[in-house]
Design a protein around this nucleic acid. Structure first.
Lengths: 143, 143
DNA sequence: TTATTTAGTTATCAAATGATAACAAAGAGG
DNA sequence: CCTCTTTGTTATCATTTGATAACTAAATAA
């Protein structure tokens, strides 16, 4: 298989990943936050602590919009901002207890749907899936 | 590895896929269409012909909004609507020549970034990647 | 025939999002 | 010291998006 054909496989693959992700996460988030806010919280929960600049880069937002959304999340007591003691321009963002609780709830919903999707998978299937994710993450979807 | 651990691997994996997808597709779309319109065109180009209802389901939109965006795309001459001869309520949507051209251009940009990402991959890496995508698509990200 | 359901449209409104300008404060380099 | 860069904020505006109600037309079921 040449790289061109592999590219078309990638298009189809990412489309499947997006569709299934959508299906798993549909309505999993609390109604009190927007989609963008959920994405930010998800990113924080996977990578915390995180600076506002890193959120920009990862979520493809502009600094002013990131700042706005972070203040909203802060007003809702879902995140905490800590100042860097070395470089006082920098901030570190992490989930607050409320934020952790909200994300745990969302993840629980998503996980139960995920388990339903895998209920007929054999031990070998699970091993295959794990290995495949490792391979793609190191060889293709690396940072 | 138990299913719970596999779930956390999935969260991290999908997050990587989204990040890289974002990176590859960043600014690839024409400025004359919105993000949602691009997603619709991408879906059409992979699955055409497609009905408005199918677009709803796949893109998690409401019928009125789908209808609105499709008329915008139609006004821009990017899609064509065909009537079903059997069931005259139904429509089939496909890309127009202009739409094909626009999507080919976008895909070309994305593909060149993809190739750059793979420039140091060996033949074995490519095979591994292909196999891993097949496994995940059949065992986890199936429809 | 008369409901009822399905497929899609149009209009309207509120909210979320994206983009930009103007700003402040800290660090880095000369 | 002065300048430039980095990090983040606030304010403002246009556009996109999501949601809902009210509607038409065709198919289907009773």
């Amino acid at each position: 298989m040449d790289k061109n054909a592999l590219f078309y496989k990638l298009v189809s693959f990412t489309s499947s990943v997006h569709r299934v992700t959508h299906e798993l996460t549909k309505n999993a988030k609390s109604d009190s936050i927007s989609q963008v806010q959920y994405s930010i919280l998800e990113y924080i929960s996977v990578s915390q602590p995180v600076t506002p600049s890193e959120i920009n880069d990862c979520q493809n937002m502009s600094m002013p919009n990131t700042s706005r959304e972070l203040s909203k999340l802060s007003k809702k007591n879902l995140i905490e901002k800590l100042n860097d003691t070395e470089d006082r321009r920098k901030q570190y963002i992490r989930l607050s207890n409320d934020g952790e609780a909200m994300m745990n709830e969302a993840f629980a919903t998503i996980e139960s749907r995920f388990l339903k999707r895998l209920e007929n998978a054999s031990k070998e299937d699970l091993d295959d899936i794990e290995r495949a994710m490792d391979i793609l993450q190191t060889k293709l979807f690396y940072p």
